[in-house]
Nucleic acid binder design. Structure first.
Lengths: 175, 175
DNA sequence: GGATATCGTTAGCTGCGCTAACGATCTCAC
DNA sequence: GTGAGATCGTTAGCGCAGCTAACGATATCC
């Protein structure tokens, strides 16, 4: 990632505005398409996203999960309740701090997540499949930039963040 | 990136799966961030998106607007009703076909849209501003690819590979 | 004129986002 | 200890968005 180059160049605001609009629109329509596949697994996008964090991020407290998902605790309570009712996650009381509730994925939760993931892969594969190798790399690069941009909007420091979560494994920790 | 050496046209499914998940996740979090700015204008993302189509796409029927937004007519009815109540769009009966309702933007609608757009520009500018010139170009390219991918997922593709587009391995029960 | 199709609306359901308020629990000062 | 305050998760209640089903109004076709 070539960052820290520091070229303080004024880009035409109109260009950035167009980019913002296109990004906004693309995100909306992308989610609408992906949701169709997500529905096939009976999981909505927020639930799937939360489950993904739990599966790959290990057990978390409900508050931590809410923070990770950029959502308020009451919202996460309901999402977790829905996931728990479907037997995809478990609530576990903390033995030391009675206020805390840890959320962990069940085997079924992991299985469902993988199945939904496979469905999206299949859907996206037919769309991404027409991209050639270099386009695929460009898309990957673009997604990474979007992730960085979103992170910087959130106030995170995109550079040097999370010394914990960057093993170049096949993990999808990027939530 | 040392993955997938030697293969020419076959992309490793795991790589595409990661890309799919990252794209999915990035879209979710991007919208969550942008919505904060959109809220400042009192317009939700779906309303803003619909208004944008009306403003830039000229007057269209409610059904056409629903199709453009990939949404069912009842949903669009409510969105338009909300926009109309705020004085941002007008319903206009078709003089020739009594069934049709044309949706057109009001001056206020255009003004509000531009204001919200400016707000997002400002927000995104500070995030995009950290990117240097080449990164900006890469992001732009990535967004374009996302738009293409979404378009091909929607089915408006140039009828290539249509017969083999769906390997019936996993049955996706359409709801 | 009558059957059929299309368009937009209404009714009713589920789910997600929020704030406000509350009980339970932990922490800390005293 | 004990009471004050902070923290955590939940509940209650609001609004919005997505859907299906069903319905009236209109257009079209025979």
């Amino acid at each position: 990632m070539t960052r820290g180059h520091g070229t303080r160049h004024r880009h035409p605001p109109v260009a950035e505005g167009d980019l913002a609009d296109q990004l906004h629109s693309a995100a909306i329509h992308l989610l609408r398409q992906l949701r169709k596949e997500d529905d096939a697994s009976g999981l909505s996008a927020p639930r799937l996203s939360a489950l993904s964090v739990v599966v790959f991020g290990g057990p978390l407290t409900l508050g931590g999960l809410a923070r990770a998902e950029q959502v308020k605790p009451p919202t996460m309570t309901r999402i977790v309740t829905g996931l728990e009712k479907d037997g995809l996650v478990n609530r576990k009381d903390d033995p030391r701090d009675g206020r805390l509730t840890h959320i962990e994925a069940t085997a079924k939760g992991r299985k469902i997540l993988m199945a939904g993931r496979a469905r999206r892969v299949e859907k996206l594969a037919s769309a991404v499949g027409r991209l050639n190798r270099s386009e695929l790399a460009e898309l990957r690069r673009g997604v990474q930039l979007v992730v960085d941009v979103v992170a910087s909007m959130r106030g995170d420091r995109p550079e040097r963040r999370e010394a914990i979560a960057r093993p170049p494994r096949i993990r999808e920790e990027q939530k």
